[in-house]
Amino acid sequence: SADYSSLTVVQLKDLLTKRNLSVGGLKNEWVQRLIKDDEES
């Protein structure tokens, strides 16, 4: 899986927004959300 934890907050928020995922919570929660989205898609 991609190394989301190395991305900036701005990059992570951009990815979350593009995938229609929530940008609520902490940075590590966003990373988990993106990883989960990868596994489900």
Rank of each mutant, 00 (worst) to 15 (best):
E39Q: 12
E29T: 06
A2D: 12
D37W: 15
Q32V: 06
T8I: 02
Y4D: 00
E29D: 15
G25S: 02
N28R: 07
L21R: 00
D3I: 12
D14S: 08
G25F: 02
S6L: 11
L26P: 11
L7V: 01
G24M: 14
A2N: 12
L7D: 00
T8F: 02
Q11P: 01
E39P: 01
R33I: 06
L34A: 01
A2C: 12
D37Y: 15
L12Q: 00
V9W: 11
K27W: 11
T17G: 08
V9G: 09
L16W: 00
K18Q: 11
W30N: 03
S41M: 11
G24Q: 15
K13R: 13
S41D: 07
L34R: 00
V9M: 14
I35Q: 10
E40S: 12
V9H: 09
G25K: 01
V23Y: 08
N28I: 11
A2T: 14
Q11R: 03
E29I: 04
E39I: 14
W30G: 01
A2P: 14
N28W: 15
V10G: 11
E40K: 14
S1Q: 13
L16A: 01
S6E: 11
N20L: 07
D14M: 10
K13V: 11
R33L: 07
T8W: 02
Y4L: 02
V10D: 15
G25N: 02
K13T: 07
E39N: 08
L12A: 01
S6M: 12
G25T: 02
K18E: 12
I35Y: 08
D14N: 10
S22I: 05
S6V: 08
S5N: 12
S1W: 14
D14E: 15
V23A: 08
E29M: 04
K27Y: 11
L16K: 01
D37V: 03
A2Q: 12
S5P: 06
L34W: 02
G24C: 15
L21V: 04
N20K: 11
E39W: 11
T17F: 09
E29N: 05
D3G: 12
G25V: 03
L15W: 03
L12D: 01
G24N: 15
T8N: 08
L12I: 07
V9Y: 11
V9S: 13
W30Q: 07
T17M: 13
L15E: 08
L26E: 15
G25I: 01
D38I: 04
G24S: 15
D14P: 01
G24F: 07
K36N: 09
D38G: 02
L16E: 02
V31W: 02
V31T: 03
L7T: 00
L34P: 02
V31F: 04
D38T: 03
L34K: 00
S41P: 07
Q11A: 07
S22M: 05
S41R: 15
Q11S: 04
K27V: 13
D3R: 12
L34Q: 00
N20C: 11
I35P: 02
L15P: 01
K36S: 08
T8K: 03
L16Y: 01
K27L: 12
Y4T: 00
R33F: 04
L15Q: 05
V9E: 15
S22V: 03
L16N: 00
S5Q: 10
K36E: 12
Q32H: 07
W30T: 02
G25E: 03
L12F: 00
K18S: 11
L34D: 02
G24I: 13
K18V: 08
N28C: 10
L26I: 09
V10T: 13
T8S: 12
L34N: 03
L21S: 02
L7I: 02
K27A: 10
L21P: 06
V23L: 14
L21N: 03
D37N: 14
D38H: 03
Q32T: 09
G24A: 15
A2V: 15
Q11W: 02
N20D: 08
V31H: 01
E40H: 09
V10R: 13
A2M: 15
L21D: 05
Q32D: 12
N20F: 07
L7K: 04
E29Q: 08
Y4I: 01
R33C: 06
R19M: 04
L26N: 15
W30A: 03
R33A: 09
S41Q: 14
D38Q: 04
E40R: 13
I35D: 05
S22A: 08
R19D: 04
K27P: 15
D38W: 05
T17W: 06
L16M: 05
L16H: 02
W30L: 15
K13A: 07
R19N: 05
L34F: 00
E39Y: 11
S22R: 05
L26R: 13
L15I: 12
K27Q: 09
L21T: 01
E40Q: 12
S1H: 12
E39C: 14
R19H: 05
Q32Y: 06
L26Q: 13
T17Y: 09
R19P: 05
V10H: 13
S1K: 14
L26C: 15
R33M: 07
N28M: 10
S5K: 09
K27R: 08
S22Y: 06
K27D: 04
L12W: 01
D37S: 08
D37L: 05
L12T: 01
A2E: 11
K36C: 12
V9A: 12
V9Q: 09
S6A: 08
V31I: 15
S22G: 09
S6N: 10
D14A: 12
K13L: 15
K18N: 09
V23C: 09
T8Q: 03
L15K: 02
S6K: 14
V23Q: 10
G24V: 14
D37Q: 09
K18P: 00
R19S: 03
A2R: 15
E40M: 13
L7Y: 08
K36A: 13
R19G: 06
E40Y: 10
K27N: 04
K18F: 09
L34H: 00
L21F: 01
G25H: 03
L34E: 02
S41C: 07
L21A: 02
S6D: 08
D3F: 14
L15C: 07
Q11H: 05
V31L: 07
K18L: 10
Y4A: 03
T17N: 09
L12S: 01
L7C: 09
K18H: 10
Q32W: 07
S5V: 08
K36L: 12
L26V: 11
D3Y: 15
L26H: 15
S5M: 13
G25W: 04
L26F: 14
Q11E: 11
T17C: 13
V23S: 11
W30S: 00
V10Y: 10
K36F: 05
R33Y: 04
I35L: 10
E40V: 07
L26M: 13
L15F: 04
Q32I: 09
V23F: 09
G24D: 15
T8M: 02
Q11V: 05
Q32C: 05
I35T: 08
V9R: 08
S5F: 13
E29L: 03
W30I: 06
K13N: 05
T8A: 04
T8P: 04
D3P: 11
S5T: 11
V23G: 07
E39D: 08
S6F: 07
L15A: 05
N28P: 10
Q32N: 12
S22K: 06
T8H: 02
V10W: 12
N28L: 10
E39V: 09
I35F: 06
V31N: 01
L12C: 07
S6C: 09
S1D: 06
V31Q: 02
G25D: 05
V10Q: 15
D3W: 14
D14H: 10
V23K: 07
D37P: 00
E40D: 13
S5A: 14
V9K: 08
N20E: 06
K36Q: 12
D38E: 07
D38P: 04
K13S: 06
N20V: 03
S41N: 14
L7M: 15
L15R: 01
V23M: 13
L16S: 01
V23I: 13
E39K: 09
V23T: 13
S1Y: 14
Y4M: 02
D37H: 14
T17Q: 13
K13W: 11
E39G: 08
S41H: 15
L7S: 01
V10M: 13
N28K: 10
N20Q: 09
E29G: 02
N28G: 10
D3V: 10
S6R: 11
D3T: 10
T8C: 07
L21H: 05
V9N: 11
D38S: 03
D38M: 06
D38Y: 03
K36T: 09
G25R: 00
Y4K: 01
R19F: 05
G24T: 12
Q32A: 13
R19K: 06
R19I: 05
S1V: 13
G25P: 01
T8R: 03
L15H: 03
L12K: 01
L12V: 02
